[in-house]
Design a binder for these strands. Structure first.
Ligand SMILES: [Mn+2]
Ligand SMILES: [Mn+2]
Ligand SMILES: [Mn+2]
Ligand SMILES: [Mn+2]
Lengths: 221, 221
DNA sequence: ATAAATATTTAGGTTTACCTAAATTAAATT
DNA sequence: AATTTAATTTAGGTAAACCTAAATATTTAT
């Protein structure tokens, strides 16, 4: 249960992220995320399955088991605590910390991380605003929601798109929406689920239900 | 010149330590140090030779090249800065820090380590009393003397222990000896090389030759 | 100087985590 | 429903870093 290789940890963390709760993740999605070939993903999924860290059946995608999720939360805890340390104590800028934390997160002593947590004053958010799981793996419900679930007139920032096909990206580009874009839901139409959204400081654009379901945002502030 | 694997780094650091200046190191010595079989050492020496990090000819032992030595100093710098951090900031005891630093030392960003150095206030010695190389790899020449070479009744201060196994540190702890402890050699026994040593202001304790060889002191005053 | 003991290297595995190319299954188009 | 396209898996390889067992070189003892 306890000791994973660096690769296994990177896979677990990536699956955790791509699951967004508990959607099933596909071979190609994980392949893109980790820049490894699909064949390598299949290899690793078989290994993680025998270790009971993922549910996996050929051709049907995968999802972390309860144990896999627990492991994922601990890796994320380490990652975010190191990011906080690098930013707060060593004065790295927010865009430099991720890459370094990507390595530090694999030093897996529980005692080290709990003492680091204490030293840092039990911070609740990393420098990117993501919540840090506590020593038991408890994590604040993410403020990340699909655009379809955003309340009216509440400002939020696009933080993720779950479909990365070129047709999706073309459409997003056409509507001038990218990661980091400020958005605000102005009106929602019952008939087809489409919505009018204010993009940045510009005029509103209409967005289909299908598109909105694939855009994830974080509340501002 | 720039990027080494975790294994390569552990080999380089171990050779550096065993060289003690620039003695040549043997396959068996390194094998014992790294707990790897002699055949594995030979494999790695061939690899490090092609990378021009060691001078090596079959059956004749090996020694770091100038470049290998430079790499070694940087790894030792990282190791000792992390040890200082763990001890000073996270309040680990001095016998716990080595093992953790053994992992942290392989996160090899130069910028990270230089910022860590600054954050720590440019410490000159690690928790075991070993000098920390500066950002250019310059390291204080240590002119300490082993406890076995200390004259009778001359007060000195423990500044270094060359074996940092937990069994060694446990024994030192039991005898109430630590870095900074004042000691004075009271008697030396020819039969087994053991010695009676006054520790601090307390009564004398008996120390085996094997232990005394690993304790280094600096004369007081 | 020979023989025995010891140290080191070579030869030929194993495991992990990747890869490419080909085969198979599933999804989308016609 | 048949065909084409896309996704995924299988088969077979590679490189790093280990290993064991056997061969060879060096050192020590007789
Ligand atoms: Mn990582
Ligand atoms: Mn982050
Ligand atoms: Mn190490
Ligand atoms: Mn040390």
């Amino acid at each position: 249960m306890l000791n994973f290789s660096v690769s296994e940890e990177n896979y677990i963390k990536a699956i955790f992220r791509l699951q967004h709760g508990d959607n099933t993740v596909t071979t190609n999605e994980l392949s893109a995320e980790l820049r490894a070939k699909p064949a390598s993903i299949t290899d690793m999924m078989k290994k993680l399955r025998t270790k009971k860290l993922v549910h996996y059946e050929a051709y049907k995608g995968f999802r972390l088991t309860a144990e896999g999720r627990k492991a994922g939360l601990m890796i994320i805890r380490r990652h975010r605590l190191w990011e906080f340390f690098l930013s707060e104590k060593l004065k790295f800028t927010w865009d430099e910390v991720h890459e370094l934390a990507e390595e530090l997160e694999h030093v897996s002593s529980k005692k080290l991380i709990d003492k680091l947590d204490e030293f840092l004053g039990f911070p609740r958010y990393d420098p990117h605003g993501d919540p840090i799981p506590d020593a038991n793996g408890k994590i604040e419900a993410s403020r990340q929601v699909a655009l379809t679930a955003l309340p009216l007139n509440k400002s939020a920032t696009v933080c993720h798109v779950s479909d990365q096909s070129s047709s999706m990206l073309e459409l997003l580009g056409h509507k001038k929406i990218a990661i980091g874009t400020r958005v605000e839901l102005k009106k929602q139409f019952d008939f087809d689920g489409s919505m009018d959204v204010r993009v940045g400081r510009q005029q509103t654009v209409n967005i289909s239900k299908q598109l909105a379901q694939n855009i994830y945002v974080k509340y501002d502030g």
